[in-house]
Design a protein around this nucleic acid. Structure first.
Lengths: 149, 149
DNA sequence: TTAATTCCTACTAAGTCGATAGGGTTACTA
DNA sequence: TAGTAACCCTATCGACTTAGTAGGAATTAA
């Protein structure tokens, strides 16, 4: 039930662009890869998905690179996750490949409600944090040693 | 990022035991399978996991079957999910197979916090609903209790 | 002893994940 | 206008997970 590593890479990359790129200064894939620890070739596809989702802009050519397409305050962590995990990226409910033949309708309805509430809670948690919030946390914690595990 | 169908089957089965089994009247795997729409053989393994997690009791032999090991009010949906999805069943954060070599430590810490909050929200949502709550919803939505065997 | 039932181990087809490979396309610069 | 640096696209791959299936051993009531 975990998010894929792609989500972690996408968030690290978005955060990296918020910290190291601007309208005038683009960030190269290779630099983002070095700073985030993501494989460069794999990061290419991640940045492509962020671009197609409208969260990132790019310029091709010899001085090309990437930057955020919106202000960091207008991009939520949930947006980034949905961009790479697909439209149902923060969905949680199990899916039946084959339709259920004799499943008790009342119980299925009760579970439907349970899953819907769980999805709402998860989405609210991710959507409540913007890239701006994350950059602030990074800057606040910089220089402070990490005692967490 | 979805829970596996096992979680749905496990919840349907638990709910089925709450509705159709008691200390004196056990429910057979085959009957639970028929009522829930789960493949009987697959349901066997699911009930086995619920039993090993201490949520379900069973009796072997010719008049054997399953019942809940605790009152429905004392079993949360999260307990059922964790029983079949494993100890990290409601975890959400991506895992790195290989350790990250050069990942920006500050950003990773900020994401660690993000994932922790998401996991807390998801777990709280699932742990906040008991099997008793679910049975009540089932009975309310059907209007008529289900006495089928 | 026989029938019914749970319990256990192993196997498998299909799908997903986390990459890697090999180029094609675009645009800046000299 | 040639070279080159960068983004962009498709295909492939090994490892792992999912959703079952198969076959039987152990246990108990009748």
């Amino acid at each position: 039930m975990r998010f894929s590593l792609k989500s972690e890479y996408a968030l690290l990359a978005s955060l990296d662009l918020a910290l190291h790129a601007s309208a005038s200064k683009l960030a190269r894939t290779s630099d983002v890869a070095r700073r985030t620890g993501a494989p460069a070739k794999f990061l290419e596809t991640v940045l492509g998905q962020l671009r197609r989702a409208g969260l990132v802009e790019s310029e091709r050519g010899s001085r090309g690179g990437h930057r955020l397409a919106l202000a960091p305050s207008r991009i939520g962590a949930g947006d980034v996750v949905r961009a790479v995990e697909g439209p149902d990226g923060v969905a949680v409910r199990p899916v039946r490949r084959r339709p259920a033949p004799g499943a008790a309708a009342g119980s299925v309805r009760a579970l439907h409600h349970l899953w819907t509430e769980a999805e709402r809670a998860l989405a609210a948690s991710l959507d409540g944090v913007s890239l701006e919030d994350l950059t602030r946390r990074v800057q606040e914690s910089s220089g402070v040693p990490d005692f967490s595990i």
